[in-house]
Design a protein around this nucleic acid. Structure first.
Lengths: 225, 225
DNA sequence: CGAGGCATAATTGTCAACAATCTAATCTTA
DNA sequence: TAAGATTAGATTGTTGACAATTATGCCTCG
């Protein structure tokens, strides 16, 4: 595939592969053969390698010299550590959102919340890794908090890694209705421009999820798919 | 340069370039010619490009199609945003450090603090970007907080970007003795295993630095070097 | 003298080939 | 038969070459 206009091949490869990995179309730990990927994307190995290097930096791929790239795998400890980082960063995004998010975005956030509510009414005990409503809520706050540095760190890096963990350590329990109630409090705090409360609620929300995770994962040491 | 043993070229290039950029041997915004870098490292352009892609993902380099790579530049707003992210993440590292850092590391932390103290006695008004004592304190806490995810995000990504900002928007004022006093409180909280207090103190410390930065940068709109 | 256009040079994006390393299948031998 | 060595195949790491694009210098023209 030759060069076309002002675009370049690598960004597209990164985006597509990142999606495939986060959505689970490629399993954690799976080998990523450069020749295979080159064939799939219709390019040579050069742009593929550049893309893999970027994904390596995002923590989605790991390189081993002379052996090649694999989809990253995370230990149970790493999973917990990701949640600790999330707690700190998302607490801040909730605070910023409350303090400076546009009214339009806050309206959208409420819509997302109601979608989550409806979805939960229909199937109240959906497992954690099939709960897009919960996910959309957090994603929107992170994306529109007004701090692009935090948005990028969370949306491009942390979230994808956590999705990887969920695929790997499957059957992680969701928190269903309790999570929704906590979302309501966060939403209200954001709507009332109460940054301090929004941060506190978000941190409690994520800390609670982390604790459920901890007890579950320690009870079931290796639920590796 | 051919392949030698189990190592590969890219990691060394990344490490060296990252250092050069963070330490200011290469100016923000400067062009990074692939041919020049290849000559300098004694390799072909392949490994250079792979390294640049990784640095791009770290926010130290920006690519422009058909034009090439430059050392990243950050706006004043980005500088503030980096401090907001830092506040959230370093607050958490201080908390974790207080709760689970080894005694040996806490001893080292006290030594680093005293070094900072001595350094400040000798030259009390060193500018912000020539204040390694302050820096070492934060770096050690981040590195040894026990959460490798946070350590890596802070040490490999955020800190380097902030150093870039300091080079670009120079003459940022330091906070001298006041910063040291706040460090003492953080240190004491960590030594007493008081995670909650350590986090609070660290957040105030960084928020205070951010506010000084805000008023200074808004007063001197473009102090671009 | 300055603005705009053209040709040339330099640089980037991509590719295909080569050398080094790893993988596996087969063969040998105890 | 099982363990180890050996060899052929496949994959990675690196390189140099070529096409596309951009930057530079020169020239023309107003």
């Amino acid at each position: 595939m030759k060069q076309s206009g002002r675009t370049t091949l690598t960004p597209g490869i990164v985006e597509q592969l990142s999606l495939d990995i986060a959505e689970g179309h490629i399993e954690p730990g799976q080998k990523l053969s450069e020749a295979m990927l080159a064939k799939r994307f219709g390019t040579s190995r050069g742009p593929i390698r550049e893309g893999l290097r970027r994904l390596e930096e995002r923590g989605l791929v790991s390189f081993h010299p002379n052996i090649g790239a694999r989809v990253a795998t995370y230990s149970v400890k790493d999973y917990i550590h990701l949640f600790q980082a999330r707690e700190a960063m998302e607490g801040m995004t909730a605070k910023l959102a409350a303090e400076s998010m546009s009214l339009d975005d806050k309206t959208i956030l409420r819509t997302v919340f109601h979608e989550h509510e409806k979805q939960l009414m229909n199937q109240p005990d959906s497992p954690y890794d099939q709960d897009p409503g919960d996910w959309d809520f957090h994603y929107l706050i992170a994306k529109r908090c007004g701090n692009p540095i935090l948005s990028s760190l969370l949306c491009d890096e942390l979230y994808q890694r956590i999705r990887l963990c969920r695929k790997q350590h499957c059957n992680t329990p969701g928190r269903g209705v309790r999570a929704l109630k906590e979302h309501r409090r966060i939403l209200e705090a954001i709507e009332e421009n109460d940054g301090e409360l929004a941060e506190l609620m978000m941190r409690r929300h994520i800390a609670a999820a982390r604790k459920v995770l901890e007890s579950f994962l320690l009870a079931n040491p290796t639920t590796i798919k």
